[in-house]
Design a protein around this nucleic acid. Structure first.
Lengths: 337, 337
DNA sequence: CTGAGGAATGTTAACGTAAACATTCCTCAG
DNA sequence: CTGAGGAATGTTTACGTTAACATTCCTCAG
């Protein structure tokens, strides 16, 4: 017995059992009020007996849409940030009565073109593409004409709507926050050099420092782990003028803090440290790391809206969603010199 | 212009433009080789021009199945473990050419019945229900007759296949691992008392100790955070006989370790500590926490297989997937007394 | 030159649903 | 008693696809 489409039981089957027409069954299934209570009862009984399940295929064929949005992700769904945006899309979809179709692309096939072509055969009214910002075909990708397409990316695309966390804005906020606290020597400790989010964060930091007329010291780079942060932190100890450190993620921030403390410096009294992503809550005792929390939920929700209600205008929108600094205990006023 | 189903452009439209029959276009779309190269080219050109996208609805209506599996999750998709199992399902689906339809249930509607009924109108050949193990209707839930159903849960269900991580097995492995290292006073530090996974882990620990004839000391409970682990760790210091601690998750383990060290005890020389979930890799400097890693990928993959290829037998399978201890540096031989 | 045989293409029908329209049946005003 | 009007239900049709069968056209052996 083939499972699938409508469970093999159709309106007609139910109709026959209940002694009514298929249309009447359809009316019952769709809660129309133009059915006598007695008839309705008989139909519902027949439905139950046969295990009727409406056929999504037939319904959407008739309706011409699916009430479903597609999300294509590459590699790791689970990594920080990505998963929250997935959740944002899912939440927005749920709220608006949409389903979500998720496809995962292996890293070696993670191009926008491939994702879009796989998606085009699926039951979706719009698609959200969430691959790394560094896919080969980002610039050349042409979205399918009849399928509203949104790319989650910090980069701007000429033909597609794009949304993402405002990585640059994150850096600017952090720099300004440090400045407000009286800091002037603000260092950046990076993650992997080739990572797009690291590049954006670093660029934003540099830009903000220059605009504010502060000194830019060439940053060091680690591999996103706390251990690499520790090493970099130990090197940072030499830098006697530095009073503020902006780490490209929280693990690095933790590494830096441990290193500074091991070197006899106090955090935040001597050096203030801030992380990014706000991913380490509740995980380390007595560490109240000040961090920057992105609004992943909103990114997902906006992506959903753009995919299901594409704006009319010529120019595709490029939306950057700001987050906020979560103040805890690793940033203080700059020490007096 | 309505988007959706087949982009509004049908085989017939393409056929007219290319001057062939719809069937020929269908053959081209399905890569049948019974088409003259020249014809194929003409058809492909027409497809491109019109932006043809095959209609999922029509195809599955005809085929009688969707090549898609449904996954229902409650509340937080992102939390440790859950997200990895999501990824496991997604990976298995991708590998076998299936799509995945994800629906998210708000916490106040997270029952198996609700999930299943929502799913029944979606394009899925099978469904995987992944709510908390504590849903109200777990025992009474009746799966729909024509939709293969799998529940991800440590509990056994009389009518549905179930899969999950082997929480009890985790505890047994950990106890035996400690015993192998010469420990005999093995404590359990729990997370939230009412959490199902905490209950299972504690039960497994207790059972293992009893079976091996070791002393069971009533465990303490925190709230899963490192800070709560720290507090409990400080209380644990009084327990002079304890040489081994099994923490119900990694954050608690970290808290315990910090507390023990602050109290002057060495880890692992004086007291060994093990966590569970292996969720804190690379996040704390110089902490090489021994932990138990579950095989979430495999849980997801098995769930997928059961949902798409339901076994014939009468008794629904109940599968517990073992994980493994990841040996690092927080467990050592028991100290000599 | 004939026609058998195969390659390429066309035609028909069915999948399950729901809108639009058609029919039946009942009630009640005149 | 008649029939207008409305409620309940039935019938037809189209959505886009593809399996199954039908047709056309070409090639080449005899």
């Amino acid at each position: 017995m083939a499972h699938g489409s409508g469970s093999g039981v159709s309106l007609a089957d139910v109709a026959k059992l209940a002694g009514v027409s298929a249309q009447t069954v359809s009316r019952v299934a769709n809660c129309s009020d133009a059915v006598r209570p007695e008839t309705r009862k008989r139909v519902l009984a027949a439905m139950g007996e046969l295990g009727y399940r409406p056929s999504f295929a037939a319904r959407s064929l008739r309706a011409g849409c699916y009430q479903s949005v597609g999300l294509a992700m590459s590699g790791d769904i689970a990594s920080t940030g990505r998963r929250l945006q997935l959740e944002g899309v899912a939440a927005a979809a749920a709220q608006r009565g949409y389903a979500m179709t998720l496809i995962q692309l292996a890293d070696d096939e993670a191009t926008l073109g491939e994702a879009s072509s796989r998606m085009s055969g699926l039951p979706v009214d719009g698609q959200i593409l969430y691959l790394g910002s560094s896919t080969d075909d980002f610039a050349t990708f042409e979205p399918p004409s009849m399928l509203p397409t949104v790319i989650i990316s910090t980069r701007h695309h000429p033909r597609c709507a794009t949304v993402s966390n405002d990585q640059t804005g994150c850096s600017v906020s952090i720099v300004d926050y440090f400045i407000k606290k009286g800091h002037r020597e603000i260092r950046f400790v990076g993650g992997r050099r080739d990572s797009y989010s690291n590049i954006s964060r670093q660029k934003g930091w540099e830009q903000a420092l220059r605009t504010r007329g502060l000194r830019v010291v060439e940053p060091m780079h680690g591999d996103w782990t706390a251990d690499s942060g520790y090493e970099l932190g130990m090197r940072l100890v030499q830098d006697r003028e530095c009073t503020a450190v902006y780490a490209s993620n929280d693990a690095i921030a933790v590494g830096v803090i441990y290193a500074l403390r091991d070197a006899g410096l106090r955090v935040p009294e001597d050096v203030s440290v801030i992380g990014a992503d706000d991913s380490l809550v509740g995980v380390i005792p007595h560490l109240d790391l000040t961090s920057y929390r992105f609004n992943d939920e909103q990114v997902g929700s906006i992506a959903f809206d753009l995919a299901t209600n594409p704006p009319e205008g010529k120019e595709p929108p490029h939306i950057l969603v700001p987050g906020m600094i979560v103040e805890r205990k690793t940033v203080a006023q700059a020490p007096q010199r």
